[in-house]
């Protein structure tokens, strides 16, 4: 299959997100990328939406995964970096690929341990379906229909690349 052009999707994603925030009347959002791919996508969105550096954060969900008992701890936990308070902030949660929805569940669990945000908007670059939880992105770059057993991987940060394995 032909893979979509990532830079074009990022631009479209930034554009759609700006529209969405305007519709929802969200100002001064906090852009939070999920390690590792989500952080790269969040960086693109930050520069295209011209948000300041203090309007971003990083989430490492290793301590919140639900497959710890099967797969154990990820050997490279880097920790989360969020501002002092996320209380009453409008959070834009960014990930590269959404599949089962379990990463997003873990990410929301972790966010609530930092405080009570005003809202969470979910932004994903690619949606490859196969959902196992009732979680859907509010803004999505594109949908990819992969064959059974295929997975997509984002490489980066510069340039962003897509590979299918």
């Amino acid at each position: 299959m032909t893979l979509p052009n990532i830079e074009q999707i990022c631009q479209q994603l930034a554009h759609d997100l700006a529209d969405y925030l305007q519709q929802q009347n969200i100002h001064n959002p906090l852009l939070v990328g999920i390690r590792t791919g989500g952080v790269w996508v969040a960086e693109r969105l930050q520069s295209q939406l011209q948000l300041s550096d203090d309007a971003t954060g990083v989430l490492d969900i290793s301590f919140y995964r639900d497959d710890f008992t099967q797969h154990g701890l990820h050997p490279q936990v880097k920790g989360s970096e969020l501002p002092e308070s996320i209380e009453d902030r409008h959070i834009i949660l960014v990930d590269d690929v959404i599949m089962s929805g379990r990463t997003i569940r873990a990410a929301m669990h972790e966010l609530f341990d930092f405080g009570r945000p005003a809202s969470i908007t979910l932004v994903c670059l690619l949606d490859i379906g196969r959902r196992e939880l009732p979680i859907q992105p509010d803004v999505c770059g594109t949908r990819l229909d992969l064959a059974d057993g295929q997975l997509v991987k984002l490489g980066g940060p510069n340039p962003l690349t897509l590979t299918i394995a």
């Binding site: 290793s62 301590f63 936990v77 920790g79 989360s80 341990d113 930092f114 405080g115």
Partner: peptide, 10 residues
């Protein structure tokens, strides 16, 4: 990483 989780409210 666990040092940073202990600096949070929760």
């Amino acid at each position: 990483s666990f040092i940073s989780t202990q600096e949070r409210g929760v």
